[in-house]
């Protein structure tokens, strides 16, 4: 039987020093054994490297920033759909755009025939940083104790309960470790000035960071999971190198999360494993991480599996992966004709 050929649109082509996952996702799709692909790149800026990687991306269109609103985005995707014979599937890869794509889920499938495989809005909201402690309590996953505060006056009451050190976190970004109330107040002021309120005070957990890349099928089944530890980290905290781990307990925790929440779509879970061997969930990203090609390297092409699930194909869950598979990230200077930059800048497509 001949393989189907899917047209798949992918965002996050910014394979730069703090990379978006788009290129890794595309590499997984390109080596898929069950289908062929035409890749449509969706870019926000004219200098996202993926636009110029013609061996990976067949055609790129600029799309509006999420701040422009869903109607504008939908209108642009309608135009793109009209230029292409078909678009079977779309992979949003940025945190900031997920809200808009989740909201557009029904319209994209209903009106343009574009499928996606994403968490529900409830799942998306529930794992937000300020809600994560509640999320953990509800789904029986250990999350460091955290409390939202709106005023520096509340710090004392919280630290009395939690003790020191304590992590002072912004709503979206930034985290600092404070060892006394004065420091905590200082960080509160600094972070709230930049990222606004509330501020999260979180119990400090010491240990090793371990991550899991996986997919849930929306019915409580874990369809694939590869645990990884970062071996080397860039100054931006991004993985430079990592290795797949033999960690059955971590897989079980992941399975429980997916079973209890009926998680649908890809995810990256970040944990801290303490010296006593206890796992604390720090963050859930509702998308594939930039290191997701490691899943392909260790025998689970999760991107391929996800497309097949969304296409209604019968997909068996991955049960195995190659332990000890490493990835080492490298950067590369692409030579680009300025004509190409001109084209994407003035016409919005290349």
């Amino acid at each position: 039987m001949s393989k189907p050929k899917y047209t798949i649109a992918v965002t996050g082509l910014n394979a730069i020093d703090s990379p978006g996952p788009g290129i890794a996702v595309i590499r997984g799709l390109k080596v898929a054994e069950s289908f062929d692909v035409r890749i449509i790149g969706l870019s926000y800026e004219a200098m996202e490297p993926g636009i110029y990687l013609h061996n990976l991306v067949d055609k790129t269109y600029q799309i509006p920033y999420p701040s422009a609103g869903q109607d504008v985005l939908f209108e642009r995707l309608t135009y793109i759909r009209e230029q292409e014979e078909k678009i079977d599937f779309l992979f949003p890869n940025f945190d900031a755009e997920l809200y808009s794509f989740i909201k557009l889920h029904k319209r994209l499938e209903g009106e343009l025939g574009i499928k996606m495989y994403l968490p529900t809005l409830e799942q998306f909201e529930a794992r937000h940083k300020p809600n994560l402690y509640e999320f953990g309590t509800k789904y029986e996953i250990t999350v460091p104790f955290a409390q939202m505060i709106f005023s520096a006056n509340d710090i004392h009451a919280v630290t009395e309960k939690m003790g020191f050190p304590i992590v002072v976190k912004g709503k979206y970004y930034d985290a600092k470790i404070a060892y006394n109330n004065e420091q905590a107040t200082q960080y509160f002021n600094k972070i709230s000035a930049q990222w606004g309120l509330p501020i999260l005070l979180q119990e400090f957990v010491q240990g090793t960071e371990v991550n899991v890349c996986g997919i849930g099928d929306g019915n409580g089944n874990l369809m694939g999971a590869v645990p990884m530890r970062k071996l080397y980290i860039t100054d931006k905290g991004k993985a430079w190198a990592g290795v797949s781990l033999d960690d059955k307990e971590l897989i079980e925790i992941t399975r429980k999360m997916v079973a209890n929440t009926n998680w649908r779509g890809p995810f990256e879970m970040e944990f801290v494993k303490t010296s006593e061997g206890k796992y604390y969930l720090i963050e859930i990203n509702p998308r594939f991480p930039a290191w997701c090609y490691l899943t392909v390297g260790s025998g689970q092409n999760q991107m391929e599996a996800m497309v097949n699930i969304a296409m209604g194909k019968k997909v068996e869950p991955f049960t195995d992966y190659k332990i000890g598979t490493m990835f080492i990230r490298y950067s590369n200077d692409l030579i680009v004709d300025i004509k190409e930059f001109e084209k994407i800048s003035t016409e919005g497509e290349l």
């Binding site: 001109e342 800048s345 003035t346």
Partner: peptide, 17 residues
């Protein structure tokens, strides 16, 4: 100056529309 309205200044590397 290109027909598409793309302007490139080779002395500075800046481009404009």
């Amino acid at each position: 100056i290109s027909d598409s309205g793309f302007i490139f200044n080779p002395s500075t590397g800046d481009s404009y529309s």
